[in-house]
Nucleic acid binder design. Structure first.
Lengths: 261, 261
DNA sequence: CGGCTTGTTGACCTAATTCAACCACGGTGG
DNA sequence: CCACCGTGGTTGAATTAGGTCAACAAGCCG
């Protein structure tokens, strides 16, 4: 039942070539353990998707505390998760890129402790929890891969705790962009450390625990020091090595596949 | 395996009564969904434990990046998880109380992105991943309960992100103690909001993203305002309602069982 | 055109850090 | 027994990172 197909490390770019590249879920765990899923499991997961739909920017997909019996897989676009304080100030707790199973944790939990919303336009796939439960009865290993994917979120949460607890403003912003860059790279969407990210400076503030004003000043510093620029949703990282040092970015928490030299 | 009849000291209140109160894992998910586990599943989980051992205070149990094939269940005492920044400053990412499956995420992940260490003396139970995998083949629902327990950690991580991102020093410390209090209450170990917690002020600083000095001043304020006191590892919460308001503590993220009125 | 959102900058303020000194306590060794 | 030391806690004074408030500019859209 386990690892029916022996797959060996390949260069990252080829890694993106799935044997069945037309799968809707082809980016799931891409670059971070997808090769541990058998062909059979990939097909089974893809089959389990109920339907797909497109969601406009800034729409709430799941409200906190609402009971849910489906989970959302992100096909394209960006989704975020956030919580509010008493006065309604937001704290982002996650940003999702294509290939992420955004709220798979709703499957065992049945309700969420936070909201889920799109950033730009997003295309999502819906999975019924009943279908997933059935999948789990027949395929314990696939179930463990799904479990694993929720634990990657957990690892990112921990890194966000670290970011907020131990880094200053410059480090926090740098770390944030390093993470997004690394995750996009794993799915082949960070071409030469450039990508678009439909966030405002206010959003960035909500992710990094700063104010909008201070994010603005921090971005200016990063720009002036030649590290990176972020203008109307377009990111260009000019010196990824230095940016990583500023953000104390150590990507092992992303559990990426060993990259071929 | 473990002698189920050799029960352990059991100072638990009545609401905690399990049908088999002598189980080593009797506190697992206690107060937060344990009733969704069948009698059969409880026994199976308890049987799956390989052995138990006692660990001295301030000992590292698992090092980051080390490959592991066992996971640790906390029977009694406290355990924390933390990460270090470049200069070696720690950031706590979790504090564990009895009944927590501390590093169950190592089962699907195989290595951890952080260290795991005891705070005071702790008694732990060891589970082989092979045994857990076998358990999963036969019992998909139990596996989902284990999955669920790792997601509770995830929810706490999110709340820690919120705490660091949106609260000031007073709120952060208040929130921290509210969480520990609530979790201990769920396992019957927060008698009238008093409990001991083997932390130093420096540890508290590492959990709340503050400096030791500032934690000291913050604790003084909490004491002076009659909210709570924390002295040599002894916590006394005098006004839980007000403390909760100060820390913007909303315990639904702990997914506790609905408390009878 | 006017009204909205997002970004930008300056002046001022405050929360938290840093640095430093000092105290209380529980060992441990002479 | 006490002197000594290390750890953890406490406090004050000086410093700084970041927040707050406010004004204004740039783009976008009805």
């Amino acid at each position: 039942m386990v690892d029916r197909l022996a797959s060996y490390p390949r260069p990252l770019v080829t890694e993106l070539e799935d044997s069945t590249p037309s799968l809707v879920t082809r980016l799931f765990l891409c670059g971070r353990g997808r090769d541990r899923m058998s062909e059979d499991e990939r097909l089974a997961l893809d089959d389990a998707m109920d339907y797909r739909r497109t969601v406009e920017p800034r729409q709430i997909i799941v409200h906190r505390d609402e009971l849910v019996n489906v989970s959302t897989y992100l096909i394209s676009g960006y989704i975020c998760r956030y919580m509010d304080d008493r006065e309604g100030h937001r704290q982002l707790v996650a940003v999702h890129v294509p290939g992420d199973f955004v709220d798979l944790h709703a499957f065992p939990m049945k309700r969420l402790d936070h909201d889920v919303a799109t950033l730009g336009v997003a295309e999502i796939g819906i999975f019924q929890h009943d279908t997933l439960a059935a999948l789990g009865r027949d395929r314990p290993h696939l179930m463990r891969m799904l479990w694993y994917s929720t634990l990657l979120d957990s690892a990112m949460h921990r890194e966000w705790i670290f970011r907020l607890g131990r880094l200053g403003a410059l480090g926090r912003v740098a770390h944030f962009f390093c993470e997004i860059d690394a995750r996009l790279a794993m799915i082949g969407q960070a071409d030469d450390h450039r990508f678009s990210l439909p966030l405002t400076q206010a959003d960035l503030a909500e992710a990094t625990g700063l104010t909008g004003v201070h994010v603005n000043r921090t971005l200016r510093r990063l720009r002036e020091e030649g590290l990176m620029s972020f203008r109307n949703g377009e990111v260009e990282i000019h010196d990824i090595a230095r940016l990583g040092r500023v953000g104390e970015f150590e990507p092992n928490y992303l559990y990426g596949d060993p990259v071929a030299a």
